[in-house]
Measured scan of single mutants.
Amino acid sequence: QLRFETNGEEQAKKVLEEAKKHNLEAHVTIENGKWVVHVK
């Protein structure tokens, strides 16, 4: 499982879109005010 700390909602959405293009499972959590994308 990969973990990407992003700078906010915009970047998190871009990472999610990329993951979906590659048929990867991804979800976002907010940790300590940071948007974190988890990709399987």
Rank of each mutant, 00 (worst) to 15 (best):
W35Y: 09
H27I: 12
G33A: 02
V36D: 00
N23T: 03
A26N: 02
E31S: 05
T29F: 07
N32D: 13
A19Q: 03
E10Y: 08
E25K: 09
V39M: 06
V15W: 14
N7S: 14
T6R: 03
N7E: 14
E18N: 12
K14V: 12
G8W: 11
K34P: 00
E9A: 11
K20F: 12
E10S: 09
L2F: 13
V15H: 06
N7G: 11
L2K: 07
K21P: 01
K13Y: 14
G33R: 00
T6M: 13
E9T: 04
F4K: 02
F4S: 03
V28D: 01
V15S: 02
W35D: 02
K21I: 07
T6G: 04
K21N: 09
H27P: 00
K21T: 07
W35H: 05
E5K: 01
K20A: 13
E18Q: 13
T29Q: 08
K34M: 14
I30C: 07
Q11W: 11
E10A: 12
Q1S: 14
V39L: 10
A12V: 06
N7M: 12
N7V: 11
E17P: 00
Q11D: 14
E10T: 09
L2S: 08
E31M: 06
A12S: 05
G8L: 10
E31W: 04
L2E: 06
N23C: 07
V28Q: 03
K13M: 15
W35I: 06
V28A: 06
E18Y: 15
R3F: 06
E17G: 06
L16Y: 10
K13P: 00
E9N: 04
K13V: 09
H22T: 04
Q11A: 14
Q11V: 07
V37W: 00
F4W: 08
E31Q: 06
E31F: 04
Q11Y: 09
L24S: 03
G33D: 07
G33V: 00
F4N: 02
H27T: 13
L24K: 07
L16F: 09
L24F: 11
L2D: 06
V28I: 15
R3N: 05
E10I: 07
E17V: 07
A26F: 05
N23Q: 09
K14I: 13
E17Q: 11
E31G: 02
T29M: 08
R3A: 06
G8T: 15
A12T: 04
E9D: 05
H22E: 06
E18G: 06
L16G: 01
H22P: 00
V36K: 00
E18K: 10
V15F: 14
G8H: 13
V39A: 01
V37M: 00
N32Y: 05
V37A: 02
K13T: 11
E17M: 12
N7D: 15
E18P: 00
Q1A: 14
E18S: 12
Q1T: 15
F4V: 12
R3E: 05
V39R: 00
G33Y: 01
N23F: 11
E10V: 08
E17T: 07
L24T: 03
H27M: 10
L16N: 01
L2W: 15
E9P: 15
L24I: 07
T29P: 00
V28T: 05
E5C: 09
K40I: 15
K13I: 13
E18R: 10
E25G: 04
K21H: 09
I30T: 06
N23L: 06
W35G: 01
V37D: 02
N7T: 13
T29H: 07
A26V: 10
K21G: 05
I30V: 13
A26S: 05
W35A: 01
K21E: 07
R3T: 10
K14H: 12
H27D: 06
E25D: 12
E25Q: 12
A12F: 03
V36Y: 08
V36S: 01
Q11P: 04
F4T: 04
Q11C: 12
N32I: 00
N32A: 06
H38K: 05
V28F: 06
E17Y: 09
L2G: 10
R3L: 08
R3V: 11
H38P: 02
L24Q: 07
E5H: 05
V37R: 00
A19M: 13
R3M: 08
K13L: 15
K20N: 09
G33K: 02
E9W: 15
E10G: 06
V39K: 00
K34E: 04
K40V: 14
R3W: 08
V15E: 03
E17A: 13
L24M: 12
Q1G: 14
G8S: 15
H38C: 07
A26R: 00
E17H: 08
H22M: 12
H27Y: 15
I30R: 08
E25V: 12
E25S: 11
N7P: 09
T6N: 04
K21R: 12
K21Q: 10
E25A: 11
A26Y: 06
T29V: 13
T6F: 15
N32G: 12
E5D: 05
L16V: 13
I30H: 11
V36H: 02
K14S: 09
A12W: 03
N32F: 06
N32L: 05
K40T: 15
G8P: 02
N32P: 00
L2A: 06
A26G: 06
F4Y: 13
V39I: 15
E31I: 07
K13W: 12
E17I: 09
H22A: 12
V36F: 05
K13G: 07
K21A: 12
V28L: 12
A26W: 05
L2Q: 09
V15C: 06
V37T: 02
V36T: 04
T6H: 04
A19V: 10
H22D: 05
E9R: 08
E10L: 09
K20E: 09
Q11M: 11
E18V: 13
L2N: 09
E5N: 03
L16A: 08
V15N: 02
V37G: 00
W35T: 03
K14L: 13
K13F: 13
V36Q: 02
E10R: 05
Q1Y: 15
K20H: 12
L16E: 04
H38T: 15
Q11K: 05
N32H: 08
G33I: 00
K20D: 05
K40N: 14
K20I: 13
K40Y: 15
I30W: 11
E9Y: 14
I30S: 05
H27W: 15
T6I: 09
R3C: 08
N32S: 06
R3I: 11
R3Y: 07
K40L: 14
K20T: 09
G33W: 00
G33H: 04
N23R: 08
N32T: 02
E18A: 14
V28P: 00
V28M: 12
H38I: 15
T29E: 10
A19F: 13
K20Y: 12
V39W: 04
A12H: 01
A26P: 02
Q11F: 08
T29G: 03
E9I: 11
Q1K: 10
L16C: 07
E5F: 06
V39E: 01
L16R: 02
I30N: 08
E17K: 10
T29D: 04
K14E: 11
A26Q: 01
K14R: 12
E25N: 10
E10W: 09
Q1W: 15
V39S: 00
L16S: 03
E10H: 08
W35V: 04
E9H: 09
N23G: 15
E10D: 11
G33N: 07
V15G: 02
H38M: 11
N23E: 06
Q1C: 14
E18W: 15
T6V: 15
G33L: 02
E25P: 07
L24P: 03
N23V: 02
L2M: 13
N7A: 14
N7Q: 13
N7F: 12
A26E: 01
V15L: 15
A19D: 00
W35L: 04
A19L: 15
H38S: 08
V39T: 03
H38V: 14
L24Y: 10
E31H: 06
E5V: 11
E31T: 05
E5W: 04
K40W: 15
L24H: 06
V15T: 05
F4L: 09
Q11S: 11
E18H: 14
E25F: 10
H27L: 08
A26D: 00
W35R: 00
A19H: 03
H27V: 13
L24D: 02
H22N: 12
G33T: 02
